[in-house]
Design a protein around this nucleic acid. Structure first.
Length: 299
DNA sequence: TACCCGGAAGCTGC
DNA sequence: GGCAGCTTCCGGGT
């Protein structure tokens, strides 16, 4: 299933307006014959029969590539069109890398996936070679003729910046714009911990529901399914090899004082987010409306 | 054994 | 140097 979660538009150098979508989902990769999870950016030319040109940030550091997304009935299919650096590279690949702007940029998610890729592949020869490859360097090169930020800038230079030009009036709220109910622990957030915060990590993992899962999302209660695995992942994010659940849970207990989180009495491994204190943009449940917030916008 | 608790000190980056 | 947000250690408890 593929969901568009962000969208925007931009004007290319040749004055063609492109619409941009940020997709997240799964797709069958015909190159390898398996279904892969992905996050990708696609530019969409509405006059081009629903064809999508995309760059996959997950693959980007390893295999800079472009592909084609096609709409067929209610399903999306994608095939690789060209892969810069590969032997079958031709001149037809179309790069929008130099002019990608989103009205909403989920840098945190991109950073998370980038880190994931780096952890998995950074030690490999292939990864190092791809970073030094001419095609990759070419892709990373800012294009002087374009006033818009380069793809590379978007992904590596502006991670924590709010200075990305936005072409839409819709924008992601900064922490300072969050509602006044949000606790100071959230509003202050950018010191000391590279903005890699435990509660954000937990909310991301709760979306996946693998090692930690909601027991009652309306109450904000969740349960640790696999304490050692969630601790290992948290340790990876913080680059702490000896992270364990004892330390992770101590981090959670620090949230007790502010009321941001608590533990469900009489239970083990069940904790609770206080939704009223979670910044709006991170909420997965709206306590005022009494409804679960869908982060994906069905296309 | 695994989880839970909170004080205290240390570390890190802004 | 001050501060936030942890991390690490600890002694104790369930």
């Amino acid at each position: 299933m593929i969901n568009r979660i962000l969208s925007g538009s931009f004007l290319r150098e040749d004055n063609v307006t492109r619409h941009l979508n940020y997709f997240k989902g799964r797709a069958n990769d015909i190159r390898y014959g398996f279904t892969k999870k992905f996050d990708l950016y696609s530019s969409y030319d509405p006059n081009n029969n629903g064809h999508y040109i995309y760059t996959d940030p997950l693959d980007y550091p390893i295999r800079p590539m472009h592909g084609q997304f096609m709409l067929s009935g209610t399903d999306y299919h994608y095939t690789t069109m060209t892969c810069p650096g590969s032997s079958d590279l031709d001149d037809s690949h179309e790069s929008d890398d130099s002019s990608v702007i989103l009205d909403q940029v989920d840098m945190e998610m991109i950073e998370f996936y980038e880190r994931d890729v780096e952890e998995k592949y950074s030690h490999t020869e292939q990864f190092q070679q791809s970073l030094n490859s001419a095609p990759y360097q070419q892709l990373c090169k800012p294009q002087q003729s374009n006033n818009l930020p380069a793809f590379e800038t978007l992904f590596k230079g502006n991670r924590h910046s709010n200075n990305v030009n936005r072409l839409s009036s819709n924008h992601v709220m900064s922490d300072s714009e969050d509602d006044e109910e949000s606790s100071s622990i959230c509003r202050k957030g950018k010191r000391g911990a590279k903005n890699v915060l435990l509660w954000k990590f937990l909310l991301e993992e709760l979306k996946k529901g693998k090692h930690v899962e909601w027991t009652d999302i309306s109450q904000g209660t969740f349960r640790f399914v696999d304490t050692s695995e969630i601790s290992r992942l948290w340790g990876n994010m913080k680059r702490k090899d000896d992270m364990n659940f004892e330390k992770l849970s101590r981090g959670i207990r620090h949230y007790y004082k502010s009321g941001f989180m608590s533990r469900q009495e009489g239970t083990r491994l069940i904790y609770r987010f206080n939704w009223a204190k979670v910044p709006k943009k991170y909420r997965q449940y709206d306590p005022k409306r009494g409804m679960t917030i869908k982060h994906q916008i069905a296309y």
